[in-house]
Computed example of a mutant assay.
Amino acid sequence: MNYNPDRVVLLRQIERMTQKRLAEETGMAQGTLSKLQNKQIEFTDDAARKISMATDYPLSFFLDHDEPAPVVDLTYRHTSSASVGELNAIAAEYALLRSVVRKLSAALRLQSKTSWIDVVAPHESELEQNRIERLADNTRTHLGLDKSGSIPNLTRAIEKRGIVVAPLHALTSKQTAQLNSDGVTQPNGKGIPVIGYSTKGHTGDRLRFTIAHELGHLILHRYRRPRLYREMEREAHQFAGALLMPQRDAELIMPRHLMLADLVRLKAGWGMSISSMISRASNLGIIDADRTRSLRIQLSARGWRKEEPVHVGDEHPILLRQMIVAEYGDPANPDKGIDTFKAENGLNVPFRFLDQWTGGLKEQGSSIGFKSKTFHQTDN
């Protein structure tokens, strides 16, 4: 069979596994693995089976020729000291997720619902605050949302318009804490857009902002890329705030002498963190620099930077699960479960990834959700 050596590299990146560790797991010589990856020797059926058995990746994974996107095309933020292993793990898992979405889309013959992004996406080199506000308003319209008021379930609104949202293990398990981003997407990608996010230790309000932020990247940076990365981040932050709390609403409900008590009261109704609302008020000029600084000092003094008061519930995506069940289960009886063998080999991915990305799937003939082991290793 025409096994692809590049998939061994991808596997190692996803699992953060050294070549030495993979050699130990498979019983293969490290030199043989090195030559295989560098295409100096043939990737034989025997070698593919050994790696498959040791890692629980289906043989079909090594037959796939999907190319992962360049790291620079993705939007997650990282510090200058972030390890290459962390960055590669996120890029590799995101590539695997996008590949699954493409395969499901083709198998189900899904029609794109995201042409509206091309309509809304700007082309100009610089975006002023007012322009970002209008883009956020237009996005609300295309999402079928009211022009004012809070968004009850942002994730569901996005999914209804054809964007897949899913948690990524590589973001959730940031082992050295060098990454400071909770989400990732590929603005210039083809096909169904995909937003990945981290669930580890994050509240519902932060997750909502992360998803709004990545949606901002999908729209604002579809056809343009600011010269400085921090400008991309600033634009996406402004967009997220404008989407979650339109300007007219913010100016109506936020007093000039904004107090923390006001923000605590507003948090539950708007599903936004107190910190993000301070930024929103500051960006709109509702409060000046001194008031902004004072509120942030108060936030820190009360320990609210790490844990704010008022609980905002999590939003749980369902689109990817629906797609998998439609192809590998019985849509008329989703509780029956899916054929895990067909799913693995049809999508060229270990079932545990499908399980993680959907928040839990059920096997046919099983009365409980399938929860497989995690195999992720460090690259230390």
Rank of each mutant, 00 (worst) to 15 (best):
residue 4 N to H: 12
residue 12 R to I: 11
residue 17 M to P: 05
residue 23 A to R: 01
residue 23 A to P: 07
residue 27 G to P: 04
residue 28 M to E: 09
residue 29 A to G: 06
residue 30 Q to I: 11
residue 32 T to D: 02
residue 33 L to M: 06
residue 34 S to V: 04
residue 34 S to Y: 09
residue 36 L to T: 15
residue 45 D to C: 07
residue 50 K to W: 06
residue 50 K to D: 02
residue 51 I to R: 03
residue 53 M to C: 09
residue 53 M to H: 11
residue 54 A to M: 05
residue 59 L to D: 01
residue 63 L to H: 06
residue 65 H to W: 13
residue 66 D to M: 10
residue 68 P to N: 08
residue 69 A to C: 03
residue 72 V to G: 07
residue 73 D to E: 15
residue 74 L to N: 04
residue 77 R to F: 09
residue 78 H to M: 08
residue 82 A to D: 04
residue 86 E to Y: 01
residue 95 A to H: 10
residue 98 R to T: 09
residue 101 V to H: 07
residue 101 V to R: 10
residue 102 R to F: 14
residue 111 Q to S: 13
residue 113 K to H: 05
residue 116 W to C: 10
residue 117 I to R: 03
residue 122 P to H: 01
residue 122 P to Y: 00
residue 126 E to G: 00
residue 128 E to F: 06
residue 128 E to S: 07
residue 133 E to K: 01
residue 135 L to T: 06
residue 135 L to D: 05
residue 137 D to K: 04
residue 137 D to P: 00
residue 140 R to S: 00
residue 140 R to N: 03
residue 141 T to H: 09
residue 142 H to D: 03
residue 145 L to H: 07
residue 152 P to D: 04
residue 152 P to N: 05
residue 157 A to K: 02
residue 157 A to D: 12
residue 161 R to V: 00
residue 162 G to M: 02
residue 164 V to D: 04
residue 169 H to D: 10
residue 170 A to Q: 14
residue 171 L to V: 07
residue 176 T to V: 08
residue 179 L to F: 03
residue 179 L to R: 04
residue 185 T to H: 07
residue 189 G to E: 11
residue 191 G to Q: 06
residue 192 I to T: 15
residue 196 G to N: 10
residue 197 Y to R: 14
residue 198 S to Q: 10
residue 202 H to G: 02
residue 203 T to V: 10
residue 203 T to Q: 15
residue 207 L to Q: 15
residue 210 T to S: 14
residue 210 T to P: 08
residue 212 A to Q: 01
residue 219 I to F: 03
residue 222 R to V: 02
residue 222 R to F: 06
residue 224 R to F: 06
residue 224 R to E: 13
residue 229 Y to C: 01
residue 231 E to P: 00
residue 235 E to P: 11
residue 235 E to V: 13
residue 237 H to S: 15
residue 240 A to W: 05
residue 243 L to M: 11
residue 243 L to P: 12
residue 247 Q to C: 12
residue 254 M to K: 10
residue 256 R to G: 11
residue 257 H to G: 07
residue 264 V to H: 13
residue 265 R to L: 12
residue 266 L to N: 01
residue 272 M to R: 00
residue 273 S to K: 02
residue 281 A to D: 05
residue 285 G to T: 04
residue 288 D to I: 04
residue 288 D to W: 06
residue 290 D to T: 11
residue 296 R to A: 06
residue 300 S to F: 09
residue 300 S to T: 13
residue 300 S to A: 12
residue 303 G to M: 01
residue 307 E to G: 05
residue 313 G to Y: 13
residue 314 D to G: 05
residue 317 P to Q: 03
residue 322 Q to V: 00
residue 328 Y to K: 02
residue 328 Y to V: 02
residue 332 A to M: 09
residue 335 D to S: 15
residue 339 D to T: 06
residue 340 T to F: 09
residue 340 T to W: 00
residue 340 T to Q: 12
residue 344 E to N: 03
residue 349 V to M: 03
residue 351 F to H: 01
residue 352 R to I: 00
residue 353 F to N: 11
residue 359 G to K: 12
residue 359 G to N: 08
residue 360 G to N: 07
residue 361 L to M: 13
residue 362 K to W: 00
residue 367 S to L: 14
residue 370 F to K: 13
residue 376 H to Y: 15
residue 376 H to K: 11
residue 380 N to P: 11
